[in-house]
Nucleic acid binder design. Sequence first.
DNA 1: TTCAGCCTGTCG
DNA 2: CGACAGGCTGAA
Length: 272
Amino acid sequence: MPELPEVETIKRDLVAKILGAQVIDIKPYDPSFLKRQKIDFQDLFSLKGQILDKIDRFGKYLFFSFKEKFLILHLGLTGALILDEKNKDTHLLMNHLILSFEFKQYLLHLRDIRKFGKLFIIGKEEREKFLNSVAEDALEISYESFKRKISLYKGPLKSFFLNQKFVSGLGNIYTDELLFRAKLSPFKKGFELTEEDIKTLFKIMKELLQEAIKLRGSSIRDYVDGMGQPGRFQERHLVYGKKGLPCPFCGTPLFYTKLNQRGTTYCPNCQK
DNA sequence: TTCAGCCTGTCG
DNA sequence: CGACAGGCTGAA
């Protein structure tokens, strides 16, 4: 589900509502999931009474800072973090609940239908190691660094953007949308790009992500923001999920294929 | 570099 | 029933 714009939207929602709030209680609802994640319940419950000092996003990861511990969350395909205001007469009822954090004014629910999300708690000594393991964020990366990485890449562009070790944040939706807008084939190799191609990709990547954040992300099936509301960027999708429909530029039916085991939609005429 | 696997749900 | 779905890992 969530790629950079969706995770960023959730982050902003949470910052607005629960930054600086104290964790009053923690309710685990899916012990088998938490066990698979190797969550130490001792660590988990040690967050009780702690203040949520900071919320960061690194690529697709959310990074919650407490006094001694850091809670790190990756939402996988169907993870969601949804705030439920306590001072209300109707409350959210949801399936696939993993756990909930109780704050003074809000309950924060972690829901994950397919359970591909990841959750871990680390101490201060592991903080640097984690941060170093996440590649430069797509919104932060400089042109020089981007150019260096992509121009050395031997594989197809699609794989470059899906692989989070080069640039972090893009997933299947935004990669297909980016390559279409840049008029570059998902099969084209990184080292085959001209300087012009790289400039275009870089510029459109940043614009695309910013625009998607403005519209609060893309909701296809499951994604909802921190308030449980869908985003609207799916209305601006040009190719993702549109196989067989006419290309918005030239009218050629959009092709669909698998690349890296991921559905890939593109215009065989416009994208070279 | 490919591909099964982790899960659950929906659609044809 | 099989195919597919905003992701990622680890093994062959």
